[in-house]
Computed example of a mutant assay.
Amino acid sequence: MTVKTRIYLVRHGETAWNAGGKFQGHSDIPLSERGRKQAKALAERLSNLKIDAFYSSDLSRARETAGILAEPHRGTVYYLPELREINFGRWEGLTFKEIAEAYGELSTRWWASPLTIQIPAGESLQQVVDRCTRAVAGIITRHAGETVVVAAHGGVIRVIVGAALGLDLNHFWQLRLDNVSLTVLEYHGPEKAILELFNDTCHLHEK
């Protein structure tokens, strides 16, 4: 019988750079007050579930989100640097428009083929795929048959979902992922996963 592991993937709450449309990457930008309220809304939604472990990227916006989610469960959060957002290098702090204006052809090439194009002083998407795949495999191994919450970043969650479903990750930006959205994957061992929920934000809607 296959042991199932359910992973709740949560994108961190909003930051000032999110609100301003700036690329964050490895820049350690904290949650805004709105981002904290968003995380508390999701924490309330998840408060009655049995959750066996909490993991997070080691960047503060994800760490704080995970801490808010873990609080009702009195859970410990484990930080994994492998779950960091894409390192956008020299693009961090810039908007999409500013990147396109400053990096022209390279920007166009990256959006068309992010798996292989290296961002100046940053990463290619393939490097992100490799580290995220290792992180998820480790979580599945350690928590076989359990339910785990993972607080991470938009690019990271797109990569994890795309890899699980066998998608062409050169198109990963076509997966919309909102702040404090909930995405659920059920793993039947490390090689097979079923997507149960994607980018759900019903906890943010007014009651």
Rank of each mutant, 00 (worst) to 15 (best):
Thr2Asn: 07
Thr2Ser: 14
Val3Pro: 05
Leu9Thr: 09
Arg11Cys: 05
Arg11Ile: 06
His12Glu: 12
His12Gly: 12
Ala16Trp: 03
Ala16His: 05
His26Val: 11
Pro30Leu: 02
Arg34Asp: 02
Arg34Gln: 07
Gln38His: 03
Gln38Leu: 10
Lys40Trp: 05
Lys50Ala: 13
Ser56Gly: 04
Asp58Arg: 11
Ser60Val: 14
Ser60Ile: 15
Ala62Gly: 03
Glu64Trp: 03
Thr65Ser: 14
Ala66Met: 01
Leu69Met: 07
Gly75Leu: 01
Pro81His: 07
Ile86Val: 15
Leu94Gly: 08
Gly104Ala: 09
Ser107Gln: 10
Thr108Val: 05
Thr108Ile: 01
Leu115Ala: 10
Ile119Phe: 11
Pro120Ala: 13
Gly122Val: 01
Glu123Trp: 09
Gln127Glu: 15
Asp130Lys: 12
Cys132Ile: 03
Gly138Thr: 04
Arg142Asn: 08
Val148Asp: 02
Val150Ile: 15
His153Glu: 13
His153Gly: 11
Gly154His: 07
Ile160Val: 15
Leu165Gln: 14
Gly166Ala: 03
Leu169Phe: 09
Leu169Val: 09
Phe172Gly: 08
Trp173Met: 01
Leu177His: 13
Leu182Asp: 02
Val184His: 00
Val184Met: 05
Glu186Ser: 14
Pro190Gly: 02
Glu191Tyr: 04
Phe198Thr: 02
Asn199Pro: 08
Thr201Ala: 08
Glu206Thr: 06
